[in-house]
């Protein structure tokens, strides 16, 4: 799954640590999500969406989607 987390974070001038603290997760988690090594659960994806005030599908893109 692709995501725009790094771009959204950069737009706000946040470091990975800043974002991790806002989400209540570790910096390693943020890094793993940004680099596509880990897809967050639905509750964490909702927390990310609320933090960036954007719908989930504006942040995460399902690469297997066929349209």
């Amino acid at each position: 799954m692709k995501n725009r987390l790094k771009v959204l974070r950069a737009e706000r001038g946040w470091s990975q640590i800043d974002l991790a603290e806002r989400l209540g997760v570790s910096r390693q988690s943020v890094n793993a999500i940004e680099t596509g090594k880990y897809d967050p659960s639905l509750p964490l994806a909702f927390r990310i969406a609320r933090l960036f005030e954007a719908p989930i599908e504006a942040i995460f893109t399902d690469e297997t989607e066929s349209h």
Partner: peptide, 8 residues
Amino acid sequence: GDEYQRMM
């Protein structure tokens, strides 16, 4: 509580 750390 950190799901990624738990998975690792």
